[in-house]
Design a binder for these strands. Structure first.
Length: 847
RNA sequence: GCCCGGAUGGCGAAACUGGCAGACGCAGCGGACUUAAAAUCCGCAGGCCGCAAGGCCGUGGGGGUUCAAGUCCCCCUCCGGGCACCA
């Protein structure tokens, strides 16, 4: 007899073999047609930027998504699980400068490399729907959408102060500026420049973007809160003060002769208007500019205030700016009281929020209070607590649950009533109205860079701005181009690109040379997956309608604002264009935690990067993926420990050997299982098996604690290994062995697809394991017939008693009282009370 | 300053609605197999005291509710993230 061959788990042998087979069978991971009759499930991981190398964050992200996709396939869903490339962006231009490689070549090379890595990981993507945003068949539709939005007034051009990153040599959106620094260059301060730029009117959807958050119950509360803060809705009143004519030295009555000119302020506390003791204007306010033009001393001081604001913004510390202001020498009239108050210019007033002007109420606003203290501006109390207190509350008194005092005819009115009445009055007098202000600004999308979607517009001397007609799309990004970092958009130096004829008049004209922010690309890419090869449209509405909304979207929380707010906006625009019916792109969003090493986020500068290729080479893709799911719950940060990967690899080896050893018996098993005696080891194993099925199934339905799923499978395997002799001897019938092994393989398959494919075949399973049905837990089998009940005395554990499952309380109580150790513990004392929690515990309260 | 998370063995973590704290794994220790090692298998393992039986302590700190608290309530500390003169 031949010696038993030693079984070694060899992922390097197993994995490439299956990788080849899967590559040869593109239908395996492809979605069925929309009329397949199966329920649809769209699971999506955020598409990567093709840097050239997957990092562990990607591995984690995709391992989560792939496990879910595989599970849903096995549950019988028609699963769409696509992947693509967010392929425009500055790194390609930097690489071009550095290596003298054209951005396109560099990008496509990176895509090929990363795709190989993904395939090596065994990720089940439908590569037939792959997209790369840098290719004309994709970005053509960016241009098409741009034109549709232009027609609807959702795209406009304006000159304004914009964020400029000197390192990127381009403009940034507000969302791309973090603490005054560039989102890609943490060390680079963003400058403010005046530039003519294209904007998307995202503010037109501000209210809807806000309201929609309430309905996104499948999104993390954290993300919803961040978006709410970003949108920053604020209800208040705009109201006009007036320049006091007799004191305004010519400014006030220049236009209107008698009445002073209005100064419009925005306030959320119109009820405190009788407490306003100054007006504060932003240094950039038009009236300030006008005043400064007449007063060189003031002009100089205003210039200083502007500098301070700029410095604070650049330091990323606008909130900590030391308040500083200058009186203008002019006065304003309070429209309600007729009182004259001084007009100041202050560095803490923002020009681009509200009206750039406030009424300063130091008695009831912390900032105004601080300012008034510094400059000895009067502080007046105009709100009192509703309930008269022994002492007056300290100022500034910020509560809105009070009543007005020293406010003329409004004395005694509550704050909330006063807000309504004063707002109403402003409207009647034509000096203002209740308004809503948002923090959200329009999305500046112009980039003075090369590697992006050309903006489909032409500048004509005669006709002004003229959209490129649809039939001329795509406006192709020229390929041969010299990349430099200065001197405006590189496209401006490509004559054959720039010089066009005006689509309207046919005269020579100049093509727009800015490109679109790459966040445009990722705002709608997931719709393209539903119809990726469509040459006539971005997608066929019927297809998008079938798949949308995305059932589960998975990605990093760093996109909570940028990508996730832009794509919500885009979805609403597409809905209003009649292309889709859904209001939101994704029903459920999951944000996974970061992968860290030695307590810090992996980064080249910290030298703590772990390469996925390295892990795969050493332990295999299955072990790498499974470790990424096992080491921590998916929503928490994960500390990468290589020893842990080795442990998972060892575990997979145990699974391999266990199944291989008993596969022969399992294959030959005929008929169903018959389990009788309670002492039967089969029964114990089947119980554990069905408990494990129930646990894992439940987790896939929403809890997603894949770390404990893997632990549960480990427990099951431990039990099966411990019963190795019974499995081998026939004491456990072959039919049971077969059920145990095949089910084990099915349970493992979402986490370790290569190994399970191999073992599934070994067990003689039909077709791909992915096409097998997810196992069902049999509650009768899973049920314990005996329970261990801890017995406490005065809340302290004394012993554990075994009782049949479902025992009546008095039976459990009797068992507890009969226990030797319990009896010795309560000897000589009186049992005052017995608490029996069915199936859980017994607590004896003794005195 | 405001809003979210989080803090449990040497380490990653578990404990779904209050009911045996530390499952599962890593590292460690002991054993089997081996000439030896690797691999594998079996066992031990929160801390302190004890030969043991057993006892005491223990989920960042302090108070509270409860028969019973990692879990609920109040106060505080530290760590991570987000927002921040937004009037």
């Amino acid at each position: 007899m031949a010696e038993e061959k030693e079984l070694r788990y060899d992922p390097a042998g197993i994995e490439p073999k299956w990788q080849e087979r899967w590559a040869a069978d593109p239908a395996l991971y492809a979605a069925d047609p929309t009329d397949s009759g199966k329920p649809k499930y769209y699971v999506l991981e955020m598409l990567p930027y093709p840097s050239g190398q997957l990092h562990m964050g990607h591995v984690r992200n995709y391992s989560i998504g792939d496990a879910l996709a595989r599970h849903m396939w096995m549950r019988g869903y028609n699963v769409l699980h696509p992947m693509g490339w967010d392929a425009f962006g500055l790194p390609a231009e930097n690489a071009a400068l550095k290596n003298n490689t054209p951005p396109r070549e560099w990008t496509l090379g990176n895509i090929a490399a990363m795709k190989r890595q993904m395939q090596r990981l065994g990720l089940g993507y439908d590569w037939a729907t792959e997209i790369a945003t840098c290719l004309p068949d994709y970005y053509k539709w960016n241009q098409w959408f741009f034109l549709r939005m232009y027609e609807r007034g959702l795209v406009y051009r304006k000159k304004s102060k914009v964020n400029w990153c000197p390192e990127c040599a381009t403009v940034l959106a507000n969302e791309q500026v973090i603490d005054g620094r560039c989102w890609r260059h943490e060390d680079t301060l963003v400058e403010q420049r005046d530039l003519e730029q294209w904007f998307f009117r995202i503010t037109a959807y501000a209210q809807e973007l806000l309201d929609g958050l309430d309905k996104l119950e499948g999104w993390p509360e954290k993300v919803r809160t961040m978006q709410r803060n970003w949108i920053g809705r604020s209800e208040g009143t705009e109201v006009e003060f007036f320049l006091a004519e007799e004191l305004n030295q010519g400014i006030g009555n220049r236009e209107q002769g008698t009445a002073g000119r209005p100064i419009r302020v925005f306030t959320t506390r119109i009820d405190t208007i009788f407490g306003a003791t100054s007006i504060q204007l932003a240094p950039e306010h038009a009236l300030v500019q006008e005043m400064a033009a007449l007063d060189s001393g003031l002009a100089k001081q205003v210039g200083e205030l502007l500098d301070e604001q700029k410095k604070a913004r650049e330091a990323g510390d606008v909130g900590a700016i030391e308040k500083h202001g200058v009186p203008t020498g002019h006065f304003a009239v309070n429209p309600y009281s007729g009182e004259q108050i001084p007009i100041w210019v202050a560095n803490y007033i923002l020009a681009d929020y509200g009206t750039g002007a406030i009424m300063s109420v130091p008695g009831h606003d912390a900032r105004d209070f601080e300012f008034a203290q510094k400059y000895a501006i009067p502080v007046r109390r105009v709100i009192a607590p509703a309930e008269a207190a022994a002492e007056e509350p300290e100022l500034p008194y910020l509560s809105e649950d009070g009543v007005l005092i020293h406010s003329g005819e409004f004395d005694g009115v509550t704050c909330h009533q006063a807000q309504e009445r004063l707002g109403q009055m402003a409207m009647e007098k034509g000096i203002g109205e209740p308004t809503v202000t948002f923090r959200l600004k329009d999305w500046g999308v112009s980039r003075q860079r090369y590697w992006g979607t050309p903006i489909p517009m032409v500048h004509c001397a005669t006709d002004g701005i003229v959209p490129v007609p649809d039939e001329q799309l795509p406006v192709i990004l020229p390929e041969r181009i010299e990349i430099t970092q200065q001197g405006g958009s590189p496209l401006g130096r490509v004559a054959e690109f720039v010089n066009v004829t005006c689509p309207k008049c046919g005269q020579p004209a100049r093509r727009e040379t800015d490109t679109m922010d790459t966040f445009v690309d990722s705002s709608w890419y997931f719709y393209r997956y539903t119809d990726a090869k469509n040459a006539a449209a971005a997608f066929e509405p019927a297809k998008a309608q079938h798949w949308f909304p995305i059932d589960q979207y998975i990605g990093g929380v760093e996109h909570a604002i940028l990508h996730l707010i832009y794509s919500r906006f885009w979805t609403k625009v597409m809905r209003d264009l009649g292309l889709i019916k859904n209001d939101e792109p994704a029903t459920r969003l999951f944000t996974q935690g970061m992968v860290i090493k030695d307590g810090a986020k992996m980064s080249k500068s910290k030298g703590n990067v772990v390469s996925p290729d390295d892990m795969i080479a050493r332990y295999g893709a299955d072990a790498t993926r499974m470790y990424a799911l096992f080491a921590a719950p998916p929503d928490r940060d994960l500390e990468w420990q290589e020893d842990g990967v080795a442990g998972v690899s060892r575990f997979l080896g145990r699974v391999y050997r266990l199944v291989m050893k008993h596969a022969g018996a399992a294959r030959e098993a005929a008929g169903g299982r018959a389990v009788t005696a309670p002492a039967d080891p089969s029964l114990k194993l089947l119980r554990k098996l069905h408990q494990t099925i129930a646990k894992i199934t439940h987790d896939f339905e929403g809890r997603w604690h894949f770390n404990t799923c893997v632990a549960a499978i480990m427990e099951l395997v431990n039990d099966m290994t411990a019963a190795d002799v019974q499995l081998a001897s026939g004491e456990v019938p072959a039919a049971v062995v077969r059920e145990l092994l095949t089910t084990l393989v099915l349970l493992v398959s979402p986490f370790a697809p290569y190994l399970s494919a191999e073992l599934w075949e070994e067990l003689g399973g039909e077709g791909a394991v992915l096409r097998a049905s997810w196992p069902k837990s049999d509650p009768a089998l899973a049920k314990e017939d005996e329970l261990e009940i801890p017995v406490q005395v005065n809340g302290r554990l004394v012993n554990v008693v075994r009782v049949p499952a479902g025992s009546a309380n008095d039976v459990v109580q009797a068992a507890a009282l009969a226990d030797e150790r319990v009896r010795s513990r309560i000897a000589g004392k009186t049992v005052a009370k017995v608490i029996v929690v069915p199936g859980k515990t017994v607590n004896l309260v003794v005195k």
